[in-house]
Amino acid sequence: MNAVRSPIAEQLARRMLPATTFVASAGVRAGERDPFVDAVLAENGLSLGERQPRTLEDLEDDYFDLIVTLAPEAHHAALELTRSLAVEVEYWPMPDPTDTGGTREHIMAAYRDVRERLRARISRRFLLPEVKNATD
């Protein structure tokens, strides 16, 4: 619903990748802004600003070189959307931190876990130099 995982990924990517990299996130359905996302981003000096959750139809640009999906439903929707397009689709399964109950600290720990998993995936995919085969 573009309320938790993908907004976190979008803000991390905006910080970590060159400014010339276009990054946008969207969901299969519209959702409500999640206050835990704001809190976990603020811990890293990031903010959603006035950004609200959006759907694929809300995106102004529909040309992408790569679509990264973070949940099964989003992955299936992206594959359907790109069936006739030359765009790469990658699935990075991420746990849903909203399924976590308990204290505020327990919930925040689940959101932090997702944030750090996303940071690591973005780094591995886009920033770390490729490891060359020893026979090269």
Rank of each mutant, 00 (worst) to 15 (best):
P95I: 01
A24V: 09
E43Q: 13
S123V: 07
E32F: 11
S84N: 12
A13Y: 01
S25A: 08
H75Q: 10
P93D: 01
Q52M: 14
E10P: 12
R117L: 06
R121C: 04
P53H: 12
R33P: 14
E116M: 02
Y63C: 09
E57N: 12
T20R: 12
T103H: 05
L66P: 06
D38L: 03
H75M: 05
D38N: 10
A77T: 13
A26D: 09
L118S: 01
S6L: 03
L127E: 13
Y91T: 03
S84M: 05
P93K: 01
F36H: 12
E116Y: 01
R54A: 14
E60R: 12
R54Q: 15
I67E: 02
P93I: 01
S25V: 02
R29P: 04
M1P: 13
L118V: 03
A134G: 03
R115T: 01
R117Y: 00
L85E: 15
R51C: 06
E73G: 10
A3W: 07
A78H: 10
G102P: 13
K132S: 13
N2L: 11
G45D: 07
G102H: 10
F64Q: 11
L12W: 08
R125P: 06
D99P: 00
D58K: 08
H76Q: 13
R29N: 14
R112F: 00
H76S: 11
T135S: 14
N44D: 15
A9R: 05
P93Y: 01
R104L: 07
A13L: 10
E73A: 15
F64D: 09
A13W: 00
R121L: 10
